[in-house]
């Protein structure tokens, strides 16, 4: 039994020590990973909170050199862009999710679509910007809110589709079968039984996708472009928080930096609130696709 003779205890202790050291290292890795999160958020709050007031949300940016002004137009712009993008993306996304889980279930075509959606999620955002520039901006003759929303929708669709699919997959097969057994047609089963049961998961996926695209800058740089004035027109360039923060951050002006921090704080707060909400809404089983 004891082949190691007198060294058995030492060896066991050594193995335990090694295990403790390696597993301890993973714990340290986890803690160290959370350090940047803490640093970024705390610095963001410290720098940004002083710039947040009524003026920030209601006023336009001031010209260079004048202190003050706000980002009211950018806040509204971001909301408009994100809203418009979801109008374009949600139907197609949910449609694809339904296809993957219902008529296309386990087919080769569905695998191809799922693969395409996953690859589309990995396409660099700046490339999506170029795509939107070539497809929307140039034919329309100028930068526009519509082009920005199109770029964002392109990024949003696969995410909505894949989370919807994951949510639909969680619906127990028995539920579907009992509906079919009652003589309810397939399409009605898919819509009124499966989709309705998964509605919460699907909504969660939409919210998650909204949070992700609200923080995007790169696809907006040469589609929505940014705007220093109030504009809600679809055909005009429109301001977005992310673009505004980017422009201000790389400018040499102290006051603009202050505003950039405030804008970044508002943006992060919006995004993190949405993420937290997603976490609260989604059941334990729902996998967020990567």
């Amino acid at each position: 039994m004891n082949t190691l003779g007198p060294y058995a205890d030492t060896y066991r202790a050594w193995r335990k020590l090694k295990s403790a050291a390696m597993m301890g290292a993973t714990v340290i890795a986890t803690l160290l990973t959370l350090v940047p999160l803490f640093l970024v958020l705390s610095y963001l709050v410290r720098q940004g909170v002083s710039g947040i007031n009524w003026v920030f949300f209601t006023r336009l940016p001031r010209p260079v050199g004048e202190v003050g002004g706000g980002m009211g137009n950018a806040v509204v712009g971001t909301l408009e862009l994100v809203g418009l993008a979801s109008v374009l993306a949600v139907a197609v996304g949910i449609g694809t999710g339904l296809y993957l889980s219902e008529p296309g279930r386990n087919s080769a075509a569905a695998n191809a679509v799922r693969f395409a959606a996953d690859v589309l999620m990995g396409v660099p955002s700046i490339v999506v910007g170029i795509f939107a520039y070539a497809v929307v901006v140039r034919p329309m003759g100028g930068f526009s809110a519509l082009a920005g929303a199109f770029a964002l929708a392109t990024m949003m669709t696969p995410l909505v589709a894949r989370t919807a699919e994951e949510a639909l997959k969680l619906v127990p097969a028995e539920l579907r079968e009992s509906a079919l057994a009652l003589g309810i047609p397939r399409w009605r089963t898919s819509l009124s039984v499966v989709a309705r049961t998964a509605a919460r998961g699907i909504a969660t996926g939409v919210l998650l996708a909204l949070a992700r695209i609200a923080g995007e800058t790169a696809p907006l740089l040469f589609t929505a472009f940014g705007n220093q004035y109030w504009s809600t027109s679809l055909k005009q360039p429109i301001a977005a928080l992310t673009v505004q923060v980017y422009t201000y951050a790389i400018s040499p002006f102290e006051d603009w930096h202050r505003q950039a921090w405030a804008g970044a704080l508002v943006l992060t707060a919006m995004v993190l609130l949405a993420e937290a909400l997603v976490r609260l809404l989604s059941g334990r089983g729902l996998r967020v696709p990567r």
């Binding site: 986890t30 990973t33 959370l34 940047p36 999160l37 640093l39 970024v40 958020l41 610095y43 963001l44 720098q47 949070a211 992700r212 609200a214 923080g215 995007e216 800058t217 790169a218 992310t242 923060v245 980017y246 951050a249 790389i250 930096h257 950039a260 921090w261 970044a264 943006l267 992060t268 995004v271 993190l272 993420e275 976490r279 967020v288």
Partner: peptide
């Protein structure tokens, strides 16, 4: 959840933090 928040922070915010901190 906390680790995933790292992925949720917009990249422009990382950039801002990168420039100044």
């Amino acid at each position: 959840f906390l680790v995933e928040l790292l992925a949720a922070i917009p990249s422009v915010v990382y950039g801002l933090w990168g420039i100044f901190v």
